[in-house]
């Protein structure tokens, strides 16, 4: 079951385990320059609002209502990143692993393959939580992604249109699968044993066509600038995931005018540009986890044209304020909890 809590999608799997859950949120961020240089991770600028699509049924096209899920506002050429968190065992604060598939326009952002139900390891079409704290774009090379950038569906920029030649789905699609209970129980047992061993060796010290009239095009995601980000290999193997108990969600993306027409709410303000951010002396981020191996980029995704490159081919300039930018970098490392890492990326310099 999926609930919407404080603009977060929370996936719970009570039939598997009380701690089997994950939360997914969409963070507003800077659009990195699309200039073929490779940039570090941009900051988080707060969550995108999310609303139940069913609440606005009378203002939406029938096919949008049929998909279900949620709707989020996003400006044209605005970027986003996706933040993940999982549930923790209460006794040992051990995370409950969850496998998550992310697609845009029903094209997998990890493997570049068309959407299929279930998980695949060849090529890997999912990320593993909590090892993967966030995802900023399409996996185009080992250690490099192209940033998720919102563009109108039908203009030819989105990954979906570039790979299928059609503008049908748009939006974001997510599916999550918890680790099988018996595998988690065994993981927890081994963890408990390792803790006991450690205690014996060193005792502790004391003590996101409407009926009304806004622009009709939905939004989809397209590949933007290059960014350093590793997508980690599944350290557990395909067999550990409980694919009988997965949950999935379609995230419809609306531009500002659509959002206002659908919900009656004002959309968030336009985020600052990368140049404005850098001018203020604020840093971007790097994340380093030596304990996990990165997967190779997907050939299908590596062949995508970036928004700027596609704009040049179409004789258009789709990205305003696309100047290159040099900025200081803050290196983030894996933390005891993902919340800490998230806060680090979200809150700026420390």
């Amino acid at each position: 079951m999926i609930t919407l809590e404080h603009d977060q999608l929370t996936f719970r799997f009570p039939d598997v385990h009380a701690d089997a859950r994950c939360s997914i949120e969409f963070q507003r961020t800077l659009r990195i320059p699309d200039d073929d240089r490779t940039y570090y991770l941009p900051p988080g600028l707060g969550r995108f609002p999310l609303r139940h699509l069913d609440d606005f049924e009378d203002r939406l096209k029938r096919e949008m209502v049929r998909r279900g899920g949620v709707v989020m506002p996003i400006h044209q050429a605005e970027a986003l990143w996706i933040s993940f968190d999982v549930g923790y065992d209460e006794r040992f604060r051990h995370p409950y692993p969850v496998a998550v598939k992310i697609a845009t326009g029903k094209i997998c952002a990890i493997s570049g393959q068309p959407w299929e139900e279930g998980l695949s390891q060849d090529p890997q079409n999912y990320v593993v939580l909590p090892e993967q704290p966030w995802l900023d774009g399409y996996c185009v090379e080992e250690g490099v992604i192209r940033q998720f950038v919102a563009m109108p569906l039908g203009d030819g920029y989105t990954a979906e249109e570039q790979l299928t030649g059609e503008a049908v789905h748009g939006g974001l699609q997510i599916a999550a699968y918890p680790m099988k209970r018996k595998v988690f129980d065994e993981l927890l047992r081994r963890y408990e044993e390792s803790l006991a061993d450690e205690m014996r060796r060193s005792p502790p010290p004391d003590g996101f066509d409407m009926v009304c009239s806004p622009p009709a095009k939905e939004m989809g995601l397209a590949p933007g600038g290059r960014m350093r980000q590793e997508i980690y290999d599944d350290p557990h193997g395909l067999d550990v995931w409980d694919q009988e108990h997965g949950s999935r969600c379609f995230v419809t993306m609306a531009n500002s005018a659509q959002w206002m027409a659908i919900t009656g709410e004002h959309p968030p303000t336009v985020p600052p540009t990368a140049r404005q951010y850098a001018k203020a002396g604020l840093p971007w981020f790097d994340y380093y986890d030596a304990d996990h191996e990165a997967i190779a980029g997907a050939e299908e995704l590596a062949g995508l044209k970036s928004v700027k490159a596609m704009g040049q081919k179409l004789g258009k300039s789709p990205l305003p304020e696309n100047e290159s930018s040099g900025v200081p970098v803050v290196v983030l490392k894996p933390k005891a909890t993902t919340q800490a890492s998230h806060a680090g990326k979200g809150e700026g310099p420390c």
Binding site: I2, T3, R66, G68, G69, K106, Q173, C249
Partner: peptide
């Protein structure tokens, strides 16, 4: 808790 979860509004998955 499980009874309350049954009345909590869930995000509806549709046909896509």
């Amino acid at each position: 808790d499980e009874a309350i979860f049954r009345v909590v509004r869930v995000v509806r998955d549709g046909d896509w």
